[in-house]
Simulated scan of single mutants.
Amino acid sequence: MNNGVVVITGGSRGIGAASAILAAERGFDVVVNYAGNLAAAEAVCAQIIRAGRKSVAVQGDVSKPEDIERIFNAADALGPLKGLVNNAGVVDVAMRVEDVDLARLERMFAINVYGAMLCAGQAVRRLSRAHGGTGGSIVNLTSGAAKLGGANMYVDYAAAKGAIDSFTVGLALEVAEHGVRVNAVRPGVIETDIHASGGDPDRVARMIEAIPVKRAGTAHEVAEAIVWLLSDASSYTPGSILSVTGGRASLP
């Protein structure tokens, strides 16, 4: 099985790494983008290669257009692009809105929103039949915070992910007729190290009682949703936002 090449931003850890490995198991060659941890990215690539697929680790900050171009040039060298997972993202320490400064907002939106949009633009230019492509899939990562608001903690992060919700629907309508499916996955409370990177390593344990299924999700469970949307099994599913939240923030 050869499903072509998929670019996964932020693919060296957490949901990105789980998605990269699962995508390889389902027949994709994978470009593993990473921000700074080369060893972690290479470890993911090694698992992909053991699964019989091709893989390359590419350093890049998705807030920088020149880095995005390098990521997609690496994908071109690997083979025909068939998918993009806009997974790279950042959170920050818990903070109320009155204490948030411009530097924090610029970083939050540059990586979580601008980077996703610029990466999607590169993907569309390769995938769209209007540009000579053969179609494919873009999967954005949003968050339960986009619906819950992140009050007293991460309103800026929630707002950035709300922008991804709108972007997903708008781009899906723009490119569906040209063979490109655009969807999003909305993770809830997931056991990854993003909580520690935001200065709150114990957040998952505190949130358990607020989750209807009474447990956190795993990166693999989110990856299953992502890779389904990458695959031809989702061929009649553009413009959807699939919640993987354990029942929290799942309802309209």
Rank of each mutant, 00 (worst) to 15 (best):
S137Y: 08
T142G: 11
Y154K: 06
D101I: 01
V100T: 14
E191R: 06
G83V: 07
N87M: 04
L251S: 04
D99N: 14
G135D: 13
A210E: 11
E66R: 12
L148N: 08
Y236P: 08
Y34P: 08
V32N: 03
V97A: 15
P201H: 09
S234I: 14
A145D: 12
P238E: 06
Y157R: 04
E191L: 02
I68D: 07
A39N: 02
M95H: 06
G144M: 15
H131C: 09
M153P: 05
S234A: 15
A116S: 15
G115T: 03
G199W: 03
G239I: 03
R53I: 07
M95C: 14
E224M: 08
I208N: 10
E25A: 12
G14R: 12
Y157D: 01
P187G: 07
I208K: 13
I138M: 02
D156G: 06
F72W: 01
A75F: 00
S243E: 09
G246D: 13
R53N: 05
S12Q: 11
G133R: 14
G132P: 08
V222G: 02
G198P: 02
D61Q: 04
R96D: 07
I15L: 08
G149A: 08
N73M: 05
A120D: 08
S231Q: 13
R50W: 01
I111M: 06
Y154W: 14
V30Q: 00
H178P: 00
V97H: 09
K161T: 02
E25F: 06
E191G: 01
G135N: 13
A233S: 15
G150H: 07
G239W: 03
S235D: 04
G246A: 13
V180S: 07
K82S: 15
G133C: 13
P187E: 04
D193G: 06
S19P: 09
P80I: 00
L78M: 14
T192K: 11
S197R: 15
D92P: 00
I71A: 07
M95P: 00
G4R: 09
A145C: 11
L84R: 02
A110R: 06
A160E: 10
V90D: 04
V124G: 08
N73C: 01
